[in-house]
Each structure stands twice: as C-alpha cells, then as structure tokens.
C-alpha cells in the first residue's frame, strides 16, 4: 500500500514525459547519414562520368579503405575515452618498416616478422597509454611527442625507406581473392564485425563509454581506468601496426612516413561517424561509415585529378563541418 502511494508521487512529481521511440537509434543516425552521403557521392560521380562506378572500381575503393578502417578503429577507441592518438601515422610506418626490414623479399621470416611488428606497435601504444594514464600527460602532447621520438629512432635505424620489397605472401594477400571476393574485402568484413562486437558488445567496451562519458564518475565507481586507458592506446598502436603491415603489402614496399597522410583521416573518420571528440559517445559503425566515405572521396578526388592542396582543404573542411554539425546538435539539446 505504502509502496503504491509513493510510486504515484514519484511519477507525478518528476514531470517526466517519455521520449518517443525512434526507428533508428540516435547514435546510429550519423552512420546511416554518412553511408547515404557515400552512395550519393558515387551516384553523382557516375552521372558526371559514366566510366566511374564499375564493380572493379568499387572493390578497389573498398581495398584502399582497409587501412583507414583498421587504423580508425584504434583512434575511435582512444577518442571514446576522451583522448586522441597522434602517433598513428608513425606507428603505421614503423609496422610496415619492420615487416619490410625483416622479410627482405622472402616469406621465410614472415612468421617472426608479423608478431615482432605487432608487438612493437602495440608497445608504442602501451607507452602512450602509460604516459596518459600514469604520468597524466595530456594525450595529444604524449602521443605527438612519442610519435616524433619513434620516428627519429626509426630514421636512425633505417634510411627511412625499405631497401627491399616486403614478403610476397603479404603482397599476394592484398591482391588475392576467395569465393569471388578479394581477400582484403573479406578481412575488412571480419574486422568490422569483430570491432563492432568489441566496442559495442563487450563489458570492456561498455566501461570505455563510461570512462569517456564521465571520468569522475568512473573513478568514484572504481572502474580500472588506468588499465583501460593503457589497453586502449595499446589497441590503437596494434591497429596502426596492422594497417601499416597491410599498407606495406599493398604497396609492396614500406617507407617510414607512409602512414603520415592517414593520421588526419583516422580522426576525420571517427568524427564524421558521429563520435563526440571529447569522448563518451559514438559507435564503431559510424567510424566504419566515415572511413568508407573518406576513401571514396579520396578516389573521387584522384579521378577528378584535383591538386593535393584542394584535397587537404576538402578533408579539413569536412572535419570542421562535422564538428559544427555536432555542436549545433548538442546546443539544441540544452
């Protein structure tokens, strides 16, 4: 009896009106929007240039998007916790260089080279994470300076580019196909499914959202924030390493700076996909859509033979545009 009475008070006193359920979860909306934009981009290119948009060309876009899809997963995890990883470009280069340097054009050493490269890349990430979580350095300074340092180390040990091609097996992987689909596309599908599960299905993923949403509450609640932060930067290093290895296989050789051009797009993919730059919101599906959109855009720019300057302007403009859209959306809420 008492319970019933207090329940009634609770309902009326709060003045709460339930929000209407929408057919699409709000956090999936940016992903859908970006995918639509990608389709629109392809269709409009097709209208301008009927040669564009062949199946081969679309698969080629998918294959070139794989580096961004992989690397921006790591970036997305870091951004989810409220940080940022500016060492991704360098780590990609280092991953590729280790593979190229160790295999020297033969497959014999590949079984050792792959784990070595991945462990090194993840290790750089762990160092970043430790700096951020334990030494409490601001993430952008920590990752930027560790990136610069490791670039320097790489430059001292190598000449900055591999002297020999990477293992042929890797090159074959990037150009082979299975059941009519290129192997990299299979890889992309499997990776996307796993990444979605990790970020949006596991308990660890849930904790990352909590950390990014309110670091203070995460601390009071006793979430293992230090370990999670280190793990997240480690994962980002690992993803960058994988992307670097794939990139080396794709271009059959490696240079230390080959990943630099991909750093900004990893951030862009995450932001376009609807993730909040300060952490706590955004799903991997959005990041994936953002990566696909940017890769399509990049191909379009190449086909239109626009200058490098224009390419940068478009990329920067898209990030700023996405951020403006985000802030106007959150301003509406308040």
């Amino acid at each position: 009896m008492q319970n019933k009475q207090t329940a009634a008070i609770g309902e009326t006193a709060g003045h709460e009106k339930p929000v209407r359920r929408q057919w699409l979860r709000p956090d999936a909306r940016p992903a859908a929007l970006v995918l639509l934009a990608t389709v629109a981009l392809i269709v409009s290119m097709k209208l301008v240039n009927s040669d564009f948009g062949s199946l081969n060309q679309l698969t080629a876009i998918l294959i070139t998007s794989i580096f961004l899809v992989v690397a921006s997963f790591g970036q997305g995890l870091v951004i989810l916790t409220g940080g940022i990883d500016l060492s991704i470009g360098v780590v990609m280069g280092i991953g590729g260089m280790i593979i190229a340097g160790m295999t020297r054009g033969s497959d014999d050493m590949l079984v050792y080279a792959l784990p070595t490269a991945l462990v090194c890349c993840a290790g750089i990430g762990v160092i970043n994470g430790t700096g951020v979580a334990v030494a409490k350095l601001p993430p952008f300074i920590m990752t930027l300076s560790s990136g610069t340092t490791f670039f320097g180390i790489g430059l001292a040990l190598t000449a900055g580019s591999s002297q020999q091609p990477v293992a042929p097996a890797l090159q074959k992987f990037m150009s082979g196909s299975w059941l009519g689909l290129p192997l990299p596309v299979w890889f992309l599908i499997v990776f996307a499914v796993l990444a979605t599960l990790v970020q949006n299905g596991t308990a660890g993923g849930r904790k990352l959202y909590a950390m990014g949403s309110s670091p203070g509450a995460a601390r009071v609640l006793g979430l293992p924030t230090t370990m999670l932060t280190i793990a997240v930067y480690g994962a980002s290093g690992l993803c960058a390493g994988i992307a670097g290895i794939l990139l080396a296989g794709y271009s059959s050789s490696a240079t230390l700076d080959m990943g630099n051009a991909l750093l900004m797009p990893t951030i862009a993919a995450v932001v376009i996909g609807g993730a909040r730059v300060t952490g706590g919101a955004g799903i991997y599906l959005g990041t994936l859509a953002g990566a696909l959109f940017l890769s399509t855009l990049s191909t379009v720019i190449t086909i239109l033979s626009l200058s490098q300057g224009l390419r940068s302007i478009i990329q920067g403009g898209i990030i700023i545009g996405a951020l403006l859209l985000q802030s106007s959306r959150s301003a509406q809420r308040h």
């Binding site: 959202y209 909590a210 990014g212 949403s213 309110s214 509450a217 009071v220 609640l221 006793g222 979430l223």
Partner: peptide, 18 residues
C-alpha cells in the same frame, strides 16, 4: 552530475556498471 551519472549511457547501463 560530474561524479555520479554517466550521462551518455542508458539508465540500465548506469546501474549495471559494477
């Protein structure tokens, strides 16, 4: 606001966190 709730998460996820 700053040490209690995770404002981006659902009420369910907030409660089940521990």
């Amino acid at each position: 606001k700053s040490e209690g709730i995770f404002s981006d998460l659902t009420t369910m996820a907030n409660i089940s966190m521990p």
